[in-house]
Simulated assay, not measured.
Amino acid sequence: MPMPRSRKYRVITGLERVNNRITRWALRRGLAPNAFALLETTGRRSGLPRHTPVGNGLVGDVFWLVAAHGRQADYVRNLIADPVVRVKVGGRWRAGRAVVLPGDDVAARSRSLPHQWDAAIGRLMATRPLTVRIDLAAG
């Protein structure tokens, strides 16, 4: 059963839609700052590739992300349905497998991410933060 969406969620996601379109366009062309990456999931209903801009949480062969809206986010629902994902970071795609970590300390995880200004914005916008670890193929 879907979770009810809060007013904060509706306002924030409305703003994010515009920003995500611009960031997605820039990431596809290699024009976005290094603080961002492009996450590719498979649509749980359509089976089509879905691209979502996320903060760059690359640490070695692990990509960390804190999903600001947790299981309310479509990309999180997609990676739960099919954990095989790709991440475009540093201009190249890397394959990986996503694992949702509901017991992780999201505040501590957010503070450990490489691009702190982006992580701080994510903490302000978050409604139901959730940590996702993506184990990447060796690169």
Rank of each mutant, 00 (worst) to 15 (best):
A138I: 13
G30A: 06
G55P: 01
I121A: 14
R92N: 00
T23E: 08
I80E: 15
L136I: 14
A35R: 01
P33F: 04
L39Q: 13
D105E: 10
T41V: 06
G55H: 10
R123C: 02
R5T: 11
R24V: 04
I12M: 01
V106E: 08
D118E: 13
R10W: 02
W117Y: 08
K88V: 03
N19G: 00
R21A: 14
A137N: 12
G47P: 09
R94G: 01
L113W: 13
G55W: 10
L136W: 08
H51N: 04
A137E: 15
A37K: 07
A119R: 09
W117H: 14
N20Q: 00
L39K: 02
A81Y: 10
N78W: 03
A73D: 15
P53N: 06
P114M: 13
R94T: 02
R45T: 04
T13D: 05
G90N: 08
N20I: 00
G96S: 05
V89L: 07
K88T: 06
V11Q: 07
L38R: 08
G122P: 01
V100M: 06
D118I: 15
V66K: 12
V106H: 11
R128P: 04
I22G: 01
S6M: 08
N56V: 01
V66W: 06
V76R: 00
Y9E: 09
P53F: 11
F36I: 05
L27I: 12
W117F: 11
I22A: 11
D61E: 15
F36E: 13
V132S: 10
V87D: 07
E16K: 00
T52C: 04
T52Y: 13
V84Q: 12
H69V: 03
R28P: 00
A98K: 08
R28V: 02
H69A: 05
R5E: 14
R44Y: 07
S6C: 08
A81F: 10
S110L: 14
A81W: 09
P49L: 06
L58K: 14
A119C: 08
R10D: 10
D82R: 13
L27S: 09
A120Y: 01
P4C: 07
G55A: 13
G14Y: 00
Y9W: 12
R45F: 06
M3W: 07
A35L: 06
G122F: 08
V18T: 11
T23Y: 03
G122N: 14
E16M: 08
P53T: 08
T127P: 07
A26L: 15
G103Q: 15
P129I: 03
L113F: 11
P102G: 06
P102Y: 04
A137Y: 06
R24H: 12
L58M: 09
D135N: 13
V100W: 10
V62H: 09
T13R: 14
T41L: 05
G55T: 05
G91A: 04
A32R: 11
R109N: 03
A32H: 12
R97G: 02
R128T: 14
R109M: 14
G43V: 02
D74P: 05
G57I: 10
G47R: 11
Y75M: 05
R17M: 03
R94Q: 04
